[in-house]
Design a protein around this nucleic acid. Sequence first.
DNA 1: ACCTGAACACCGTTCAAGT
DNA 2: ACCTGAACACCGTTCAAGT
Lengths: 177, 177
Amino acid sequence: MARRATPLTTQEVVRTARSMIEHGGVEACSMRALATELGVQAPAVYRRVKDKGELLGLVLADSFAEVELPAEGTWQERMAELMRRLRRLLRKHPTLLTLYLASHLRQTDAARLAEVASAPLLDAGFDAEGASFAVTVLSMYTLGMTTVAAALAIDDDEMFEYGLTKMIEGLTPAGGT
Amino acid sequence: MARRATPLTTQEVVRTARSMIEHGGVEACSMRALATELGVQAPAVYRRVKDKGELLGLVLADSFAEVELPAEGTWQERMAELMRRLRRLLRKHPTLLTLYLASHLRQTDAARLAEVASAPLLDAGFDAEGASFAVTVLSMYTLGMTTVAAALAIDDDEMFEYGLTKMIEGLTPAGGT
DNA sequence: ACCTGAACACCGTTCAAGT
DNA sequence: ACCTGAACACCGTTCAAGT
């Protein structure tokens, strides 16, 4: 067989997998189909990636790296805007949700994502546990509103904002600001 | 091959699938493994069930049929208790969660579940859209607290109750009780 | 080091054929 | 009607062998 001009990079593998998933869902991205897209035989992919689980984790990380954490504002404002950005990403690529939900069942990935989003809360004086709690509540809310509600045809930005505000109010720690 | 004494029933198929999923996760319940467990060849299962998607839907419905809707109390009390029961089910069989999340992406199943849980809210004067919204918010919260929080080792009944109360307060419609 | 070819142990599903 | 046997078109992954 003719070989590729350049050797396979991990970036190339992850980006290609991500675009396949965004266009056709996780099930469209079999290791074999991915290899074909990359112009390579299936086993070659295993030189860059331990297994399919690792690949999906990398795709997820690559997506969420684009959800920037707002740098300014109160923690309430920063969390609200972060959730809006998460919502925007999930709306653009609803297919990422399956991946996100699956990852939440795997400790390491969930912990890593929660850690990043926790920053504004830690800055505001939340303890580590309270911050993880708040991030979990807010991201589950956002996921729910953006996907389940959409499936039920009750998706609505005003409703999302209303619930988001309520939820953030509820999270303010006793004696907090 | 020796045939089974009695013909295969749909109930038998669903119950066996459910127990396989509860013990080993969705991936432990391949159509072939299920058939073996039932003492039958794989194609025989397709006489009772259209495809694997339908089977998983039936397993889910069979599980949630056991989460009873509290008959008495204010809508707040009824919803809170319903969520506690959902939490109990998911804790006993965490493996059902994957199924539940997947179903939420399929309109029909999500709508059916939301409809059942909406009853106390409709009784209390919520409109259909508001009721679906509330059920979605609360069940996503419960799912998040019961699984994601558990994975992050911040699972705690007191916290669950605190957040649940806050969330239900936030859902009270303007001018509602 | 990087990749291929071939293979292993699986999938879900269909369909003609048997009882 | 109910089920089997055989097949189709796939999976993820491993591994010896080639360049």
